[in-house]
Amino acid sequence: MDRTIAHDPLVLLARKAAATGAEILARRDESKFNTDEKSAAGDWVTDFDRAAEEAIRATIVTTRPNDELTGEEYPSAKPANPSGLRWSIDPLDGTTNFVRNIAYYCSSVAVCEKDEDGSERWVAAAIAAPALHVEYFAGRGLGAWKQDLLTGKLTQLSGPADTEARILATGFGYDPARREFQASVLQQVIGDYVNVRRLGSAALDLCLVAEGALDAYAEFGTQEYDWAAGALIAEEAGTLVGRPVGYPGWQYAGLVDASKLPMPD
């Protein structure tokens, strides 16, 4: 592994924070889910979501108390003397998979910094998937990497190979109207691919594009914490990434023709 990314402090902290969240998820116990529905039937939040975010926030604050924190389960934390860095946290991306014992779930952590013009750019990211025993991480200009947590093997990611047998990943929302729109768009783009996968974690979908297991990913209506880390990882692997501009927007990576992604009426 390149020594620059191995010692980058923000990458190291992102990895540590994501690993801390994943440690909570690894304690999965069906008797302690305590699921609550958020926006619709099946859109669950569990005690594990909350505990993992608390652990991730504590890890970041211990090292960088003046950074802003935003996340899925708790309100934003804005320090009195902000550093100019902001963290985006998804403690459990793929909660439905987690509850149903499907291995595709993870803790996702990314950090962005404000440029002089007030815009933000993502500079470090890490995703830890405890049931898959794998970690992904990236730093701005430092590349993207995958580590097998069982063997310790490190692999630098370089995106999908050039192939005609391309596979697209996507996701569907819990709201029926959004699902109907997403399905209609899928019909427009599927002709460029031989098949579709729906794995249930936007963060891991982006990582699988980064490592070339999937060729492209597109989903409408994701939140920032869903894509923040995975988008940087895919981008640093050399993959074209489109981040939503406002809500709802499209998140995509490696897409053949992004012009086929319309907005709903």
Rank of each mutant, 00 (worst) to 15 (best):
D148A: 09
L69N: 04
C106W: 03
P91W: 05
T35S: 09
I56A: 01
L92E: 08
F98W: 03
E72S: 12
R50S: 03
H133N: 13
A58N: 11
A41H: 11
T46H: 01
N97V: 02
R57A: 11
A110W: 03
G71D: 03
P75Q: 04
G152V: 10
A19Q: 12
D117R: 15
Q147D: 00
L142A: 10
A110Y: 01
R86W: 00
R28H: 15
L150R: 15
K146P: 04
A55L: 03
L92V: 10
G21K: 02
G118T: 07
S31H: 07
A144D: 01
I24D: 13
S107R: 09
D67Q: 02
V99Y: 10
D36N: 03
V45F: 04
V45G: 07
N97S: 07
D148G: 07
F33C: 05
D67G: 04
W87A: 00
S108Q: 05
R50P: 08
A22G: 15
V61R: 14
L85N: 02
T151Q: 10
F98Q: 03
L25G: 07
A40M: 05
A58T: 11
C112I: 00
K153F: 00
D47M: 02
A103I: 09
Y104M: 03
T59W: 02
A52Y: 04
L150I: 10
Q147S: 04
V99T: 10
E53M: 12
E72A: 08
W122M: 15
V111Y: 08
T46Y: 00
K146M: 10
D47N: 14
G84W: 05
K146R: 15
S76L: 03
A40R: 05
S39A: 07
K146C: 10
A138W: 01
T63H: 09
I24K: 13
E30M: 05
N34R: 08
I127F: 04
R121L: 03
K114R: 12
I56N: 06
P75T: 02
E23F: 02
V123H: 12
V109T: 08
D117F: 01
K78Y: 06
R64Y: 12
W145P: 07
K146Q: 15
R121H: 15
D49R: 05
A26D: 15
E68W: 01
R27N: 15
N34Q: 14
L25C: 07
E120L: 14
Y74A: 12
L85W: 06
T63S: 14
T62A: 14
G21R: 04
W87K: 09
C112R: 15
D117P: 01
K78C: 07
S107Q: 06
F33Y: 11
G139W: 02
T95P: 03
F98E: 05
V109C: 04
Y136P: 08
V134D: 09
G141A: 11
G42E: 06
I60H: 13
N101K: 14
N97A: 10
T70C: 12
E23W: 09
K78I: 13
S88F: 06
S119H: 09
A19S: 13
L25A: 11
A125D: 12
W122K: 02
A19H: 12
S39G: 10
D117M: 03
I102P: 00
E37T: 01
D49A: 13
E72T: 06
R86S: 12
F137A: 13
V45H: 07
E113K: 15
T20K: 11
G118L: 09
V123E: 08
V111D: 11
D117E: 09
T95M: 06
